[in-house]
Amino acid sequence: MTGWERCDMLPGRMPRTNRKVLSTIPTCTMGDISMLLMIFFMSTVIFRMDNGLPVSLPRSEAGQHVPRENTVRIWIDAGGRVSIDDNIIDISEIEPIIAAKLSRNPALIVSFNTDRRCPYGLVSKAIDYLKDANAVRVAFMAPRIERGGSLDD
């Protein structure tokens, strides 16, 4: 029971009508909340570390999420240039580089970020070097069509 109801019940007294109920939402903590969110997003964001080569990736309908952890990216552009960790390398250097990475991390996944116009022979050669390095887990990067682009190859 509140005081207001008790007052109403008193005999011979008119109910008070001049009392105003404040209906405001306190907004003085909005700044703190926005700061908190801002700090959260600023601290959790991860920036891409390697830039790779400019490639036009093929699109897919059945593309699956490839975790970034344990992943090394091989970039092959339309002109046939090969890059790992932002270094342009010769295709034959794939084997020692990947073998070294694999010895440090046996769960390594090699992802091919290859331009769709690149001849397949080059990719096949890179796959052969991966087999030599015993890197068997590969992924052909192809973002899903829902994210834009066309399936045209």
Binding site: A62, Q64, V136
Partner: peptide
């Protein structure tokens, strides 16, 4: 910024190769 941020998701076709 929340609404305009696009998280880059890596999507691809995974495959397990036979070892040499």
């Amino acid at each position: 910024f929340i609404s305009s941020t696009v998280f880059s998701i890596d999507e691809g076709l995974p495959l397990i190769l036979p070892a040499r």
